[in-house]
Design a protein around this nucleic acid. Structure first.
Lengths: 191, 191
DNA sequence: GTCTATAAGATGATAGAC
DNA sequence: GTCTATCATCTTATAGAC
């Protein structure tokens, strides 16, 4: 969590975008270098191996996500409102930028990932499910989210639907289908 | 749809498994050749380019899926039963073999795919959503599936949840989470 | 149908100069 | 921090012999 240099930061941002667009196996150090206007050897100076870079990207993504989650806890009026804001995090990636969730992409590619990258993706899901589980639990308590069964189960179902919805939106080049799925998923919890 | 030679068939099967495991960008003609015990030039004899091979794999997968869907229509006692059998198709891939849905993987990788491959993945989703939409429609009619909103919306939501559930199961190496998500999703449709 | 041989380029990574 | 140079290897793909 130390402060990052200017170039190291740009590398992370570009690598993240490329993984979200083409997948972990779909980008190279040369691609990144070309976009910045440096050579691939310079990228290796900042991140020794591709596994190191991938793990750093995933860790940064997960950490930022945690920050956003904390903000939602502050801003969300009630559990239902928090859930809506949560959906907005995913919506931003796919609808505004046409990208997958970074960890959804990495999750699909699990088997071809270096272990250190996979481990970061795992933590993303673990943390998100814990947070979402709390939202459903407080939703059951404050009456803004109606469901039967455990809050953990509905946290899983909701996150799975969001990840799947991003795949849909991309394969059809139709961001609106993400919104449609998200709305149908949320509608089930009111009334 | 002409009859395939022995080797051509093996190539398709191996390529499919590799795409489901490592992704389209995670396998090479050499990988396939090595597993069969031939040279990569021989793979090129059967499928001139990687795009050709990828499109053939996706087309075969989608065609087989259609066959399975037809069988479900025959075997399914009612709409709810058909939906349960449908979930079983996805379950088989992830729980028994630890693989992604082929088209879920391709959908995530959309942006780095040759157009002919993407097009086949698209058709898979289109056909599945049409079929699932019919299931929900008849479920509303025969009373075995209870929901508010359109059958198309619930078809989308269900398929999205299944695709997402496969990502979960793989990232955690925990097939049981697929079952948990699928059950939670189905439970919502029986009152 | 499969092979050898080969091309032409990409890839992850390193050594050492500036 | 960035460069040049280089490496060994992999990748998709083709030509032509068997």
């Amino acid at each position: 969590m130390a402060k990052q240099g200017e170039t190291a930061e740009r590398i992370l941002a570009i690598a993240q975008r490329m993984i979200q667009s083409e997948g972990y196996n779909g980008f190279s150090f040369r691609d990144i270098a070309a976009e910045i206007g440096i050579k691939s050897a310079s990228v290796h100076y900042h991140y020794a191996t591709k596994g190191d870079l991938g793990a750093a990207v995933a860790a940064r993504y997960a950490a930022r996500f945690v920050t956003w989650l904390e903000r939602i806890v502050t801003e969300g009026r009630d559990a239902r409102h928090r859930l809506i804001l949560y959906v907005g995090l995913f919506r931003a990636a796919v609808v505004e930028d046409g990208r997958m969730c970074l960890c959804g992409m990495l999750g699909a590619e699990s088997e071809s990932l270096p272990l250190e990258v996979l481990e970061e993706a795992r933590q993303f899901f673990t943390r998100n499910l814990a947070w979402l589980g709390n939202v459903f639990e407080s939703g059951a308590a404050d009456g803004t989210l109606i469901f039967t069964g455990s809050s953990e189960d509905h946290a899983r179902l909701t996150l799975a639907a969001l990840e799947g919805a991003m795949v849909f939106a991309r394969v059809n080049g139709d961001p609106a289908s993400f919104d449609q799925i998200a709305e149908t998923a949320l509608a089930r919890y009111t009334r």
